[in-house]
Computed example of a mutant assay.
Amino acid sequence: MLTRRHIRVKVMQCIYALVQSKDDSLAKQEKFLRVSMENMYVLYLLMLSLLVELHKMAVMHVGHASKKYLATADDNFPDREKFIKNRLLLQIANNESLNNELSKRKLNQWYLNEEYIKIIYKAVVASDVYQAYMNNGKDSYEDDRDVVLHLFREIIAPNEKLYEFFEDEKLTWVDDLPIVNTYLVKRLKKANESSGERFFLPALLKDQADMDYANELLTKTLLNDAKWEKEIEGKTPNWDNDRIAEIDSIILKMAICELLNFPSIPEKVTLNEYLEIAKEYSTPKSSIFINGVLDKLAKEYKTTGRLQKIGRGLQ
C-alpha cells in the first residue's frame, strides 16, 4: 500500500515532529514512525468502511420508502433498489475479512458519529452522478464501479465535514488523507467481479525491506544531523542557516543521507523523489532552492567518488 515516496514523507513528518518537540529520543521516534505508518492503514480502513455505512443507509432508506403510502422521488427511478444492488458496494459491504479487521481494531467511529454518514449520504443522493446512475437503465459491474468511483472522487473525498472529522480524530490524518484517497481510487479502479476479499485489504508495506528502509533512513538522518548540516552549509554560502525553512532543511538532509548511504537506490530516483516532496510540502521557491543544492552536491559526490551506487543502471 505504501510506496517508497509515502515512506519518505512519513520519515520527514517524524523528523519534523522531533524538531518541534525537541525530543531527542531515537527510540520514541522509531515508535512514532511505526505508529504513524500504521495509522495510515487505519485511515484506509475507515474510508473503505465509510462505503459500507453509506450502503447500509441506502438499504435502510429504501426499506423505509417501501412502507410509505405516498410516492417518493425514488419511485421515479426504473429500479429504486439499483444503488443497494451495486455489485462493488456489495463486495465491500459483505467482506467478512474487512468486518473482522474493523472489529479487531475496534474501529467504530462511524457508529459513534452517524451524523457524518447522513451528511454524505444526502450529498450523494442529491448529486447529478447518483441521479444519472439511477436513471441510465444500465446493469453491469463496470457501471456499478464507475458510479462508486465518481461519487468517491466528486462527493465523498472533497467533503469538508469529513475532512474536519478526520482532523479532529487525528491531526496527522490531514496529510495522510490525500494519499489514502488516491490509493483507494486506484484500488477501486482495479476491482472486478472476481476480486476476492483480500483484494480490498492490501498489505501496508510490500515487504520487510520497506520497513528496514524507513527505520534506516530515519536513524541515519538523525544520527548524522551535524554532518548533513555541514554538507548543506558548503553549498549555500549566501544563506544563513536560520533562513532555510525547517522543512526544507529536513528534506535536504534526508536526500543527502539517501544519496550517500543507500547504494542500491539510483541517484536520479533520490533526486526526483525529494524534489517532488519539496514541491508538495514546501513552496515553489523552496523546491527550486532544494533542486539547486542537491544538483551541486550530487555532482561533487560523483567527482570525489563519494557517490557509490551498486547494480546496473545506478550510476
Rank of each mutant, 00 (worst) to 15 (best):
N241F: 04
G234C: 00
L259G: 04
E258C: 14
I251R: 01
N261V: 04
I232Y: 08
F262E: 10
D240Y: 11
P237K: 09
A245R: 15
D240K: 15
W239I: 08
D242Q: 07
E233V: 04
N238P: 00
L260C: 07
N241D: 09
I250F: 03
I251M: 03
P237N: 11
G234T: 01
M254G: 07
K253P: 10
I247T: 11
M254N: 04
G234L: 01
F262T: 13
K253F: 04
E258T: 08
D248F: 01
I251Y: 02
L252T: 01
E258A: 13
A255C: 09
A245L: 13
A245H: 13
G234E: 01
R243C: 12
N241G: 05
E246S: 14
E246M: 15
I250T: 11
L252W: 03
N238H: 01
M254R: 02
K235C: 00
K253C: 07
I256M: 08
G234F: 02
P237R: 06
K253G: 06
M254L: 09
L260A: 09
K235R: 14
D248V: 06
R243G: 11
G234Q: 00
I251S: 01
L259V: 04
R243I: 14
K235D: 03
C257S: 15
K253E: 14
L259R: 10
K235M: 03
K253W: 05
I247C: 02
L252F: 03
A255Y: 05
N261M: 13
E246P: 11
I244L: 10
S249M: 12
R243D: 15
I247L: 10
I256V: 14
I244K: 12
D240P: 00
E233I: 07
F262Y: 15
G234A: 00
D242F: 05
N238R: 04
E246G: 08
K235A: 00
W239S: 12
I232G: 05
L259F: 07
N261H: 14
K253H: 13
D242P: 00
A245C: 06
I256W: 04
L259P: 02
